[in-house]
Design a protein around this nucleic acid. Sequence first.
RNA 1: AGAGAGGUGGCAGAGUGGUCGAAUGCGACGGAUUCGAAAUCCGUUAUACCGGCAACGGUAUCGGGGGUUCGAAUCCCCCCCUCUCUGCCA
Length: 424
Amino acid sequence: MLQVSVLKEQTDLVLAGLAKKHYPNAETEVAAILDLDQRRRQLQTEHDQAQAEANELARQIGGLMKSGDKAGAETLKARTATLKQQTKTAAEELTQVETSLQLALVKLPNLPHSSVPAGRTPADNEVVAEHGPKPELPPHALPHWELIKKYDIIDFELGNKITGAGFPVYKGQGARLQRALINFFLDEARNAGYEEVQPPILVNEASGYGTGQLPDKDGQMYHDAQDNLYLIPTAEVPITNLYRDEIIATEKLPIRNAGYTPCFRREAGSWGADVRGLNRLHQFDKVEIVQIALPEQSYGILEEMRAHIEGLLQKLELPYRVLRLCGGDMSFTSALTYDLEVWSAAQGRWLEVSSASNFETYQANRLKLRYRAEGGKTQLLHTLNGSALALPRIVAALLENNQTEDGIRLPQVLHSYCGFEKIG
RNA sequence: AGAGAGGUGGCAGAGUGGUCGAAUGCGACGGAUUCGAAAUCCGUUAUACCGGCAACGGUAUCGGGGGUUCGAAUCCCCCCCUCUCUGCCA
């Protein structure tokens, strides 16, 4: 959530940013917010003044009662009624205005960083790096959804039977490969200085709200109505919310956490072409890295996170490229996002396997996540996160890119983690 | 899940209708003492919002929400959470 103070003091900058994100009606909505804020201040002042008078009267009544002047107390009591009414009216209107203000504010996306390219669609994303040669495939190379059948390592039919579409069952070497990748990613994160955490995978409403999934993407999360809990779409949600409502001591910054969790996404409305096999699932595994940092450090840290993720892909010997997302393609809450895509050789396309973002203060504002700046004032921190990495598409690329006549050869780095060197 | 107890400042812990934002202790910070340190002593030590250039003033907050009252940490109702016992269970 953007800060009203920013809307007020840097209106032009805000409007330019919203335009880059292709947010419609920005001018009207920002103006409405500023009006609401003005009204809010006014009502707050009215309320406080009436309340202050009422408090003063109550104090006087207290004094009179103590000294036994009952009649005097009664006289003063008579005067409290109107004040009480004034306070009540102001408070009610204040609540209304605050609610409207909140609703309007929450609708605005984060402002893009100055380096974010203009543009509306994925075609406008900027390729900032490309690494590794694309492999030569043997004749009759298969896409991963054929390979998993051939080697019987992932079973979609079984998943259909016990749950539904998009919930595959990993078997044998497929299951072991999953476990190996998770361990590899977690070990790499630990070596890079991230503390491992294992959070709950169900979160409450406040958490969904804190990181911005709610109210925006309500329909994209699985929801348990009985207990009003949400299955997490990413470990970003529980891990970042660990620090909700906190004032973090600067010497503890930056906070670095890594966590493995399954992730659940309803993916309502996003089933079209290109979703075969492992390309898009309702449940998948991911290791996520999260950092909480001082504002002046956050962009350096984003680069560091990107380098960490690139390192993982290099160790896995996968060809990849890095995109800087354009204003129209980046997420609602992000200020700058790098997407990392691996080359899926048999499909002949790039698959997104990671997304690393700096949210600046957008999440922190909702989370009330602060530090104490020079002079003792509290200031909002910056939050960042990245996938390091999401498994299914990594598996897809590993299978497709490394297929040979006699099985699928796994990269060196996974041998000890898997306990085998090839599948099949 | 049932019965009972309880949720107060960074922590511990008083306070059961009237200057209570809240005693006291610990911790932290600043200062004095010291060559330096420990000990000791003095002081400071929440957050948000409103007004103000500021100094400062005001309002709210004692798990959350609502109510009673001139006045609520304190009384009433609902919800959440924690602990103990019983039951169930990986």
